[in-house]
């Protein structure tokens, strides 16, 4: 049985429709990457799954349960955590307080402050700093750590490498095996196609609110991707 099943998901902002019937499936232990150009609807998709945008109940099935109409604060209780685009740390909270906010839902699981600090040792050093006083890469670690603190079964990462130096991106992705080891499934949105190919078992490409390509990294050609990306 698939972990996450998205069926005919539509979403938008007011009169503006951003997604037109997305279908996507994610199996347990599988890492899937979504690529697509600016404005393709990737973030809208992630926000819809996380419950920030309303949907019909059956648009999002998680472990066989319809959760499409749940609000975000209930979705996280079900075991889905979003690392939002732009990190969105709480500016008036310290690093440690940001991490602790992640545990607000009180979901049981393997993650706690100590394990986050083992995963990202630099955060322990900076734990009393305001989250926003950190470098971009460190802020991203806080955002990931904060999401993990809810002990998610499904981790949604929206452009975690955006604006970061390549070595920093590498450092961050180095944490993924440890995250997946505990059975957490990961769905990432990546603008960097090579990065997406490197980390994922399967990729989807979005274009203007629709899935334009789906396949395994080894099996899709550069030309396929170009076509799916730019619609040529």
């Amino acid at each position: 049985m698939s972990k996450l099943k998205i069926q005919n998901l539509t979403a938008g902002y007011g009169d503006f429709q951003a997604l037109f019937g997305i279908d996507l499936e994610l199996n347990a232990k599988e890492t899937v990457a979504i690529i697509g150009s600016n404005g393709a609807g990737k973030s809208t998709f992630m926000r819809s799954i996380a419950g920030l945008l309303k949907n019909t109940p059956d648009a999002v099935q998680f472990k066989g349960e319809n959760i499409g109409d749940l609000p975000a604060n209930k979705v996280v209780e079900k075991g889905i955590a979003l690392v939002p685009e732009g990190r969105r740390l709480f500016p008036s909270l310290s690093v440690e307080e940001n991490l602790l906010m992640g545990a607000y839902s009180k979901r049981k699981g393997p993650w706690n402050l100590n394990r986050i600090y083992e995963l990202f040792p630099i955060l322990k050093e900076k734990r009393n700093n305001p989250g926003t006083a950190l470098s971009g890469g460190q802020q991203q670690m806080v955002a990931i750590g904060r999401a993990l603190m809810s002990n998610p079964e499904l981790l949604l990462c929206d452009e975690i490498s955006l604006g970061l130096a390549p070595t920093t991106v590498k450092d961050i992705y180095k944490a993924f095996p440890a995250i997946q080891e505990d059975g957490t499934t990961v769905l990432v949105v990546e603008q960097d196609i090579n990065q997406a190919m490197a980390v994922s078992d399967r990729i989807y490409c979005f274009q203007e609110g629709r899935v334009s390509l789906e396949g395994k990294p080894g099996e899709v050609s550069k030309d396929d991707i170009k076509a799916a990306y730019f619609g040529m």
Binding site: P71, L100, Y104
Partner: peptide
């Protein structure tokens, strides 16, 4: 208190943490 401050900072992100705003 932490939830108060977080919600005041950023309502959507607080919701993602499980806060009922």
């Amino acid at each position: 208190g932490r939830a108060f401050r977080a919600t005041s900072d950023d309502q959507d992100t607080a919701r993602l943490m499980g806060v009922n705003n």
